[in-house]
């Protein structure tokens, strides 16, 4: 048994596949291991056992996972509850980075233009009337906003809009929309917008954001 190692933890069993071994060797050894285990297990107990498969710095393809699952499925008492690796695809990493980091956005968004971003945005540019700034996360404003701000696009109602948006035409968070000129409550430069528990766009003071959305602040570094 060189390519795979069976370990027992407090919270279950783990089979770690060595990332330096060839996949054909791993499959061979897995077959032997499970055949062996099924014989031994009948002497011990009858409950089913779930395994976590860890792959180190190797990423399994969908077919490779299926091949492993096929071996295990021959034994009804054994299941795999999780595949995990120490690594992720760079594309995934980039996506996470996009989602989690705060993007600085400057420049002018003109009438008819839609600027689409992912993650949280610190906007220091100018948003003209008829222009739209749209992001999946929250929007923090330092710039001049006279257009439409859309945070939490398409459906993240945890997003907030903080900063001076009192001259904006509309603000949207998730699927909630407010037309600023029609708002009963006066929107000032110190107002922050969020979606409340009743799923209605609501306003609060800028300094209250920390109480309303503590998760926004639970961030360490870039990731």
């Amino acid at each position: 048994m060189k390519s795979i190692v069976l370990k027992g933890h407090n919270d279950g069993y783990e089979i770690s596949l060595k990332d330096s071994a060839s996949f054909t060797d791993i499959l061979k050894e897995l077959k032997l291991l499970f055949a062996d285990l099924s014989v031994k297990q009948t002497f011990n107990q009858q409950e089913s056992v779930a395994f976590e498969i860890t792959t180190g710095t190797r990423l399994l393809l969908a077919e490779q996972r299926k091949a492993i699952e096929a071996i295990v499925s021959a034994y009804p008492q054994f299941t795999i509850y999780k595949f995990s690796a120490d690594v992720i695809l760079t594309s995934q990493a980039r996506e996470i980075l996009q989602q989690k980091s705060l993007h600085l956005e400057g420049g002018i968004i003109r009438n008819g233009q839609v600027k689409e971003l992912t993650g949280d945005v610190l906007f220091i540019g100018t948003l003209h009337q008829g222009g739209m700034l749209r992001t999946t996360g929250s929007i923090f404003l330092l710039g001049n906003c006279e257009g439409i701000l859309q945070a939490g696009y398409p459906n993240d109602s945890a997003a907030v809009i903080v900063g001076d948006f009192h001259r904006a035409q509309q603000i949207r968070i998730s699927d909630a929309i407010a037309i600023i000129a029609q708002e009963k409550q006066a929107v000032t430069a110190e107002t922050a917008a969020y979606v409340n528990d009743l799923h209605v766009l609501d306003y609060t003071k800028r300094e209250q954001v920390k109480q309303i959305r503590p998760k926004l602040f639970a961030r360490t570094g870039g990731l």
Partner: peptide
């Protein structure tokens, strides 16, 4: 002015 803004966006 609004239309000019739109056009400048396209020109840029």
């Amino acid at each position: 002015v609004r239309d000019a803004d739109r056009v400048i966006g396209l020109l840029e």
